[in-house]
């Protein structure tokens, strides 16, 4: 049986209850191709049952909802299957499984979570804010995983006086900090009037980036490994001057 759900935590937990006894269960939140002959169920979120499932899982492993949150943020195509197998194992073992590091379901889940957490860490460094005329900061990002709201606490702690918007242009949503509160909002496109000096600071940053490099020790492969090309789009040091 294929269980379709909407990718939210509540729907996942509802689906988990349905899929648990089904050994052949396939879980999907994407546009999975319908396999001919396979039975499909569209899981409708049942908040009450989801809450009960959550309470039971938390009794088995008090940290497992944190894992679920990370897993459901993953952009990996098999993340639903990975999450299902991981939670089935928690239920079957009746306790935490995250240290069973030779278990397939745990290896896959850890890898999936590691990628999400690692991308959050990377974006603590790779986010580039543009200063708007009002002084508010705006950063467009296009991450692999659904993480824009996870970036807020970090920047809020270091820039409390600056309202900012971190805009996931791929998922068309934004994490907003208004100088007081933080929230998530859908955002298609943003029109930003840049501050008068923004261009000059970007130029200085490019000059710095060029000057600190040691050309005789070129290692482009290493650079791309640490800072993959797909992230360059919004980094001014990777724009050529005059653009």
């Amino acid at each position: 049986m294929i269980y379709f759900y909407d990718g939210t935590k509540e729907a996942f937990l509802t689906a988990l209850l349905l899929a648990f006894p089904d050994e052949e269960a396939v879980l999907s939140s994407g546009n999975r191709q319908l396999t001919l002959g396979a039975e499909t169920v569209f899981v409708r979120t049942d908040r009450e049952r989801a809450a009960r499932a959550e309470a039971r899982l938390l009794a088995l492993d008090k940290d497992c909802m944190h894992d679920l949150d990370l897993l459901l943020r993953s952009g990996m195509p098999d993340r639903d299957a990975v999450a299902l197998a991981y939670f089935k194992l928690i239920a079957a073992r009746g306790g935490p499984v995250r240290k069973m590091l030779a278990e397939d379901a745990v290896i896959a889940a850890q890898e999936c979570m590691r990628r999400v957490s690692f991308e959050v860490h990377r974006f603590h460094g790779f986010v580039r804010f543009l200063e708007s005329a009002s002084g508010a900061l705006y950063a467009p990002i296009s991450p692999d995983n659904d993480i824009c709201d996870l970036l807020v606490p970090h920047f809020r702690a270091r820039l409390p006086q600056y309202p900012f918007v971190i805009h996931d242009v791929k998922r068309k949503k934004a994490a907003v900090y208004d100088g007081d509160h933080a929230f998530l909002a859908p955002l298609e496109r943003a029109e930003i009037v840049l501050s008068a000096s923004e261009d000059d600071w970007q130029k200085l940053w490019r000059k710095y980036y060029q000057s600190v490099n040691i050309p005789s020790r070129e290692r482009l492969k290493q650079m791309r490994g640490y800072m993959p090309v797909r992230y360059w789009k919004f980094m001014p040091e990777k724009f050529s001057d005059g653009s």
Partner: peptide, 12 residues
């Protein structure tokens, strides 16, 4: 925290 990487593979 690394903020960028230069063509020599070093972190900024």
């Amino acid at each position: 925290c690394c903020h960028s990487f230069t063509p020599d593979g070093r972190c900024v």
